[in-house]
Design a protein around this nucleic acid. Structure first.
Lengths: 190, 190
DNA sequence: GATAAATGTTACGGATCGGTAACATTGTCA
DNA sequence: TGACAATGTTACCGATCCGTAACATTTATC
C-alpha cells in the first residue's frame, strides 16, 4: 500500500500526496511538504507533474482505479447474487469510510474544488455519475422497491459517514454506518 | 438577514465572513476579501477581531445562536407534540441543507479545522454533543424504537446531504433528503 | 464648533506557497 | 571508463496572505 522507501520517485510522490491530501485537504498542504514526505524534492515533483493541479488529477485517477478494484472485488466475492453483492457493498463501504486515513479522496476532492474551476471537476462529476449508475443497477437487480431512492439514501449515508468520521472520529455516528445502511436496505426489499 | 449597507462594521464583517466562509471555505478566503465584501477594510476588521481565528470563532458563535432559534422555532410550531416536532425537524433540516448558501458553517468548519488545533475545536465538539443530545431526546419522546440509532441515521443523512449539496448541487441526492429521512423516521416508529 | 472615538487609507513586514533556473550528484548502460 | 538520463540541492521570483504601523478621515458627543 504505502510505497516502500525504494521505488520510483513518481510513485512515492503520488502516495505521499494522496496521504497528505487526505490528512490536510488539497489546499491545506504544500508541494514542498509533499516532496519531503516522499523523500524526494520539489524539482523532481515538478518534472513528473507539471503543476500541483496535475498532481491532484493523477491522485484522483489513482483513487478511481482503486475504486474499480472495489467494485470488481464485490462482484467476484458474490458471483451472481445481487442481494449479497449489495450487502457486501454496504460492509465494504463501511470499512472504507471508517479507516484511519481513508481512501475517499474522491469525495473530499469533490467537496474541496467544486467551488473553483479545477481541471479535475469534470472527471469527478463523471465518476460520480458512473458509480451512481452502477449502484442503481445493483439495487435494482437485488430487488429494491425504489432503486433510485435507495441509492439516494446510501449516497447520503456514505458521504455523511465520511464527513462525520473526519470531524467526529471513532466516537461519532460514522461507526454505525453499516448498521443503519443495512436496515435501510432491508426496508427497500419488500 | 444580510446586513444592509448601513449597520456597524462589526456586523457587516461578520455577515460577509460567514457568507464567504460558506462559499470558499475557511482556508479558501482571505481577510482582505472579507473586509472588502463587508464594505470595510482590514484595519477595522483587526480592531474588532484580533485575528482571523477569532473572527472564525465569532462566526461560529453566531451560527450557534441561529441554531438555537432553529430548535426553538420547531418547539414553538409544534407545542407538546414530539412526533410532529421530529417531522418538522426533518423538513427544516432539509430546507436548511439545500439552500444556495446554506447556514451549515458549523458542519463545514468542523470538517475543515478538525485536523488542525484551531481554538474553535472544543466549541464545535461541545455543540455537536449538545445537538445530538437534544435530537436523541426528541426521538425518544416521539416514540422511536432505538432513539440513539435513529439519531445516528439522521446525523449521517444531514451531513451527507450537506456535503452532497455542495459538490453535486440541486441535481444530487441531497434534494431527496427529506423523503429519505421521513421514511427512516417512520421505520423507527413501531 | 470642539474633542475624542471610530473608521478608512496606504504602506509595509514576515511568512508561505506555487513554480522555475542553474548546477551538482547519482545511477544506468554501452 | 565514458556518456547520458534521472534525481537531488540551492537559490530565487512573484503572488498571496496574516497582521501591524502611521496617518487621514468621518462620526458622535458635549
Amino acid at each position: 500500500m504505502t510505497a516502500a522507501v525504494r521505488c520510483p520517485p513518481r510513485e512515492r510522490i503520488i502516495d505521499a500526496a494522496r496521504d497528505l491530501f487526505r490528512k490536510h485537504g488539497i489546499k491545506g498542504i504544500g508541494v514542498d511538504a509533499i516532496a519531503e514526505a516522499a523523500s524526494s524534492n520539489k524539482m523532481t515533483l515538478y518534472r513528473h507533474f507539471g503543476s500541483k493541479d496535475d498532481l491532484v488529477f493523477v491522485c484522483l485517477q489513482e483513487a478511481a482505479s482503486e475504486a474499480e478494484a472495489f467494485w470488481e472485488g464485490i462482484k467476484a466475492a458474490n458471483p451472481g447474487d445481487p442481494r449479497a453483492q449489495l450487502s457486501d457493498w454496504v460492509r465494504r463501504a463501511g470499512e472504507f469510510v471508517t479507516v484511519e486515513h481513508c481512501n475517499c479522496e474522491l469525495l473530499d476532492a469533490a467537496a474541496q474544488l467544486m467551488e473553483s474551476d479545477h481541471p479535475a471537476r469534470q472527471f469527478i462529476e463523471d465518476l460520480r455519475g458512473l458509480y451512481r449508475e452502477r449502484l442503481v443497477e445493483l439495487c435494482r437487480a437485488a430487488g429494491a422497491a425504489d432503486a433510485e431512492l435507495l441509492v439516494d439514501a446510501l449516497t447520503l449515508l456514505v458521504e455523511g459517514a465520511r464527513t462525520n468520521w473526519r470531524s467526529a472520529g471513532p466516537g461519532g455516528a460514522a461507526t454505525r454506518f453499516v448498521k443503519v445502511a443495512d436496515m435501510i436496505v432491508d426496508d427497500f426489499m419488500r
